[in-house]
Design a protein around this nucleic acid. Sequence first.
DNA 1: TATTATTTCGGCAGAAGCTGCCGATACTCA
DNA 2: TGAGTATCGGCAGCTTCTGCCGAAATAATA
Lengths: 183, 183
Amino acid sequence: MRPPELDTFDLRILRELQEDGRLTNAELSERIGLSPSPCLRRTRQLEEMGLIAGYQARLDAARLGLGVLAFIQVHLERQVEEAARDFEAAVLALPQVVACDSVTGDSDYLLQVVCEDLEGFAHFAHDILMGIPGVRGVRSSLALKRVKEHRRLPLDQLKPVPKSADSAAEKAGIYGAGSQKGM
Amino acid sequence: MRPPELDTFDLRILRELQEDGRLTNAELSERIGLSPSPCLRRTRQLEEMGLIAGYQARLDAARLGLGVLAFIQVHLERQVEEAARDFEAAVLALPQVVACDSVTGDSDYLLQVVCEDLEGFAHFAHDILMGIPGVRGVRSSLALKRVKEHRRLPLDQLKPVPKSADSAAEKAGIYGAGSQKGM
DNA sequence: TATTATTTCGGCAGAAGCTGCCGATACTCA
DNA sequence: TGAGTATCGGCAGCTTCTGCCGAAATAATA
């Protein structure tokens, strides 16, 4: 997937909203150096393009009494085509699993699991996870300390389009019917 | 850390805001079955108590051209007291690292890293990460497919306080000076 | 059980913010 | 250089926010 070409304003909007998702449009427009109208337009477009996938409150798991975060490497049975599909479906339905990726390396999936306490985690790992058909084995690591968890994407790595150049053609593609660029 | 005792309304607020962090207070109050005034009051309290740590826009990394998510297990040199402190400080300053936990098991830290492409990732792993003093070795897994990534805490695991019981004493402690519970 | 104290509720009103429309400006392309 | 296009900023009606009020519900006490 090719990155859409965003100018500095767009990147600033993304950056600010990634920091504070409840910024008012008025405040946001001030911070990025644009008046409210075009700022709101751009934000809506970023949402419609799916670059902003949504907004969410970040909750403090520990303070809420969800004290255990575990990373679980999962190995599935080989040669079972349906195993992966079934496992993914099962994982999607488990609220304790807050993230799940299929990964390279010596396991098939990496799960991130949140539980109240070790007892709850033990129950999850043994009775629930190991009970999913196709699961051959798991290996768990418990998070001892959350060193960094802001989860903000490194937008600084992206270089803005200078807003001059082929801006017209670019916008036509991005904001318009979007019939180019091999979508 | 003991979980603060939240009633059903509080839990509903957390649930809804975890789903959509930009809900208007009017809409939120409707959904939880309370009028706007007390709803806003409760939300503000949840923020002040730190249960709501913040709000953020969830961006689509892939569509933004940040196509690589990697999980990196990091081993530090043993017997080096400062290694951990220095490593954590270094990690905090690296924008590519979107999350970092110190973990149990056969590595010291688990990093989640976002890069534009494999080239960028290779550069990060070799030139940046391995360049941090005290790092003995790393092992990487690349995410092939994000099966689940909503990152919503399983609030259903928590049981609400019936709103009767010792509500008065509880509120005094939580909402007031907060001088109890070993803070 | 009756009374008092405390807490939380719902409603209201001024202030702030949203949002769709307008003309004006800057830019591109022929 | 001139026509066409896209983005800007401003405005106005509407929604939403937010702090303050009295009322209702709950808890503590006698």
